[in-house]
């Protein structure tokens, strides 16, 4: 194993806002971390939790989902649906032994190229800090989660 770590991040971007925003970042020649490989979906609400788990399973160190800003969804409310699903999934991730910080949902409008670039940079820095997703850490994280759960479930 070499000392250098390049995070591998899979990005799911909605076609109408975020994907267009990512295109705008490129058209504006903004330089940002090339670590996010983008998969275009029609709506962030299309992002099935299994897509995210599949990406982690196949070797992604992080998963980024970007949709339209709340209220601006092309399909009226798909981004709200994504927000709810991701909130639940984040809770589950710990049980799989994956730090919830490896999953990020953010809003990028079609006109926010700069915002997209900074979201990607932040995400990449975050994953760089967390290091590669090591399955060996899994039991530790899961154990921590179990402990937290036990504490929160204990009647006070």
């Amino acid at each position: 194993m070499t000392g250098h770590f390049e995070p591998r991040i899979v990005g799911f971007l909605c076609n109408w806002c975020a994907y267009t925003g990512a295109d705008l970042a490129g058209t504006s020649r903004l330089k940002y971390a090339p670590n996010v490989d983008i998969i275009r979906v029609m709506c962030s609400g299309r992002v099935d939790p299994t897509f995210i788990l599949k990406a982690f399973q196949l070797g992604a160190d992080g998963v980024l989902i970007c949709g339209c800003h709340p209220g601006d969804c092309h399909y009226s409310g798909g981004n709200y649906k994504a927000a709810r699903r991701i909130a639940i999934l984040k809770k589950l991730l710990k049980q799989f032994g994956i730090e919830p910080e490896r999953l990020r949902l953010d809003w990028v409008s079609a006109s926010e190229g700069e915002r997209f670039a900074s979201v990607v940079n932040e995400m990449t820095a975050q994953i760089r800090k967390l290091g590669p997703l090591m399955p060996t850490n899994g039991p530790e994280i899961a154990k921590e989660e179990a402990k937290e759960f036990a504490e929160s479930a204990t009647p006070g």
Partner: peptide, 15 residues
């Protein structure tokens, strides 16, 4: 979509 994820991540250590 799964195939695309797999294609993108080919070469990483699969878990």
């Amino acid at each position: 979509v799964f195939a695309q994820i797999e294609g993108i991540l080919a070469g990483t250590e699969s878990r």
